[in-house]
Computed example of a mutant assay.
Amino acid sequence: MKQPLGVILAGGQATRMGGGDKGLLPLGGQTLLDRVIDRFAPQVAGLALNANGDPSRFDRLRLPVLADSVAGFAGPLAGVLAGLDWAAEQGAEAVVTAAADTPFFPGDLVPQLLLAGEGMDHPLVLAATPDPERGTVRHPTFGLWPVALRDDLRVALEGGLRKVVLWTDQHDGRIARFPVATFDPFFNVNTPDDLARAEALL
């Protein structure tokens, strides 16, 4: 498979942060989004941002801004679909998604997802980490998504499906396991306390 395109999912409403764009919050002299872009861009063939509302607030980033095509804040899968439609226009086979509020995700995210998807007709893989209580935890905003399944995803979303793993399980989605050292690399910033923790982790 050719190197996939990357899509940063920033379409959430950030209610626990008081609304607004979590990705534009400062962390150690950069925004969360800047940190995600720095980590993600070297791993993919091109990058876009999934976000709703006025795209001009992201002009500084010089990235395509893709709005959800499904109305009513349909969750991460709507952002995945927007990314797949964009990728189809570029002639790409797949996208990898990353969340805009997760500044420490693995530097080898894309190669590990591709490795886990080897041998699949339409590679569909979610990132996962071990958890002492729950066993394996999947991270539904970090995945490898095939363009070939975009119309199936569109129908599922229009039918009301919102839970990522329900859709990936329907298509025999796999997982790529990532190790956890001192903290889970998919730790994301949801609250002011999380932001303070991220500052400490820097």
Rank of each mutant, 00 (worst) to 15 (best):
D54L: 03
D193S: 06
R60W: 08
L113F: 13
L115H: 14
L149E: 03
A48P: 02
L33T: 09
L32Q: 10
Q170I: 00
R16I: 03
G75Y: 11
G53E: 07
G135M: 02
D54E: 05
Q43C: 07
D169E: 15
D108C: 02
G18P: 04
L25K: 05
T191Q: 01
A88T: 08
H139W: 15
P179V: 12
G12L: 11
V189S: 08
A128D: 03
A156L: 13
Q13V: 15
A41R: 13
L153P: 09
P132N: 02
W167Q: 14
F186N: 10
T31Y: 10
D193K: 07
N50G: 09
G11K: 06
P106R: 15
A198Q: 02
E199F: 14
E93T: 14
L202M: 15
A41T: 05
L61Q: 09
F73D: 09
Q13W: 08
D85M: 12
Q43G: 00
F40D: 00
G160Q: 10
L47E: 07
I37G: 12
F58G: 04
A71H: 03
G159I: 03
R60Q: 12
V137A: 06
W86I: 10
T102C: 13
L25R: 07
F142S: 04
S56T: 11
A127F: 00
G160N: 11
A100E: 15
T129F: 05
D101S: 13
A71R: 10
Q3E: 08
K2A: 13
G29Q: 05
I175D: 12
F73H: 08
A196F: 07
T15V: 05
A127G: 01
G160L: 11
P111I: 02
W86L: 04
R62E: 15
G28L: 13
A88D: 08
L9M: 12
T182L: 08
V137P: 00
A94E: 15
L5N: 01
L126V: 03
L202N: 14
F186E: 14
E158C: 03
L84A: 10
D184S: 04
L126I: 00
G159A: 09
R16W: 10
P185C: 03
P192H: 06
R174V: 09
P192E: 12
P64Q: 14
A45H: 09
D151T: 08
P42S: 03
